[in-house]
């Protein structure tokens, strides 16, 4: 078991290295494009170009360039954005990450809880109007674009009905750090959470229901019924417990890509200064150091989440435990 964990962590490190090389190559070794000009930003002076070239060692071989870049990213953390007047990139991400993490974690709690409830109830009442109703609800959730839903929520809570008793508590757009004011943090985020969660509730509840329904035809579910167990116990302890294996793998990937910047639209709509919005800004400014840093950050999260999912598998599925 311990060995399996270590081996998985080793693999993770290797994959991260691979990704960093890939990202580096995409930005610095693409033929026909001079990275110097791109780092320096639009309309940079020859002096700036010269400075950039020296700083990044762009006149030296690729492995040295790679090492310089990685040193700047992870060790000295002094990668600076020229497009943004020398703003240090790494602290910028470090400031944005908590916002994104707050947003995604809260939404994840909501979507996991609600989708498990909806999926399980729908599977238990398969074929009834409750089942159909829940699944249609899920479908509606999936089909509503998050930016539209966010704008509607803003419209209602920020302007149209802001003065009614129902929404008067809603603070203005923006983020309040948890450490400063927990209640303010909660109030600022609760609507973004719900908006972000809606689509995932739809997807996850439908996936879970389908999985549970498929499982109900399995031999072991029949055995559980033949044992004389109650339907709820069969569904929860045997069905849901087994479905969790699928559920967790799905969740790991979605969660990671959201933390890695995938919550961009929600962040933009609600004015949250998160990683997604940072990436968006970097792209609009063609701010190469920042893009490089955010892509790396995102990759790290996806890979780490994958590792976590795999480790969770070890706990959830004894068969996987033995296969390693």
């Amino acid at each position: 078991m311990m060995m399996a964990l270590l081996r998985r962590l080793g693999q993770t490190a290797f994959v991260l290295f691979g990704i960093s090389v890939l990202v580096f190559l995409v930005f610095f070794a693409t033929p026909g494009a001079d990275p110097t000009a791109r780092i320096a930003g639009r309309n940079a002076s020859p002096q700036t170009l010269e400075k950039v070239r020296a700083e990044y060692g762009l006149d030296r071989p690729l492995p040295v360039q790679y090492a310089t870049m990685m040193k700047k990213l992870f060790i000295t953390q002094d990668l600076a954005s020229y497009a943004d007047r020398g703003e240090l990139v790494v602290p910028e991400i470090a400031r944005a990450a908590p916002v994104t993490v707050s947003l995604v974690c809260g939404a994840a709690v909501i979507w996991v809880a609600l989708s498990i409830a909806m999926g399980t109830i729908a599977a238990a009442m398969k074929g009834t109007w409750v089942d159909r109703g829940l699944m249609i609800l899920g479908l509606i959730g999936i089909s509503m674009p998050v930016f539209w839903l966010g704008q509607v929520a803003n419209l209602i809570t920020q302007s149209r009905y802001h003065d009614t008793w129902l929404f008067s508590w809603v603070p203005g757009l923006g983020y309040v750090p948890l450490t400063e004011n927990p209640w303010g943090w909660f109030k600022a985020l609760v609507i973004p959470w719900c908006v972000l969660a809606v689509m995932f509730i739809g997807i996850y509840s439908r996936v879970l229901r389908a999985d549970l329904v498929a499982l109900s035809g399995e031999d072991f579910m029949r055995t559980a019924r033949a044992k004389g167990l109650s339907p709820s116990r069969i569904l929860l302890r045997h069905g849901l417990r087994t479905s969790l294996i699928t559920f967790v793998s799905l969740f790991g990937l979605d969660f990671a890509q959201l933390v890695g910047g995938g919550a961009l639209l929600t962040e933009v709509v609600f004015g949250l200064p998160g990683v997604g919005r940072l990436t968006y800004q970097a792209l609009t400014n063609l701010d190469l150091p920042l893009i490089m840093a955010t892509v790396m950050y995102s990759a790290v999260f996806v890979v780490l989440a994958n590792a976590v999912v795999d480790i969770l598998y070890l706990f959830l599925d004894p068969r996987v435990r033995d296969a390693r």
């Binding site: 031999d219 072991f220 029949r222 055995t223 045997h238 599925d317 004894p318």
Partner: peptide
């Protein structure tokens, strides 16, 4: 099939 008749987890 006793393999599939037990819950695997």
């Amino acid at each position: 099939d006793p393999m599939t008749a037990f819950t695997p987890v």
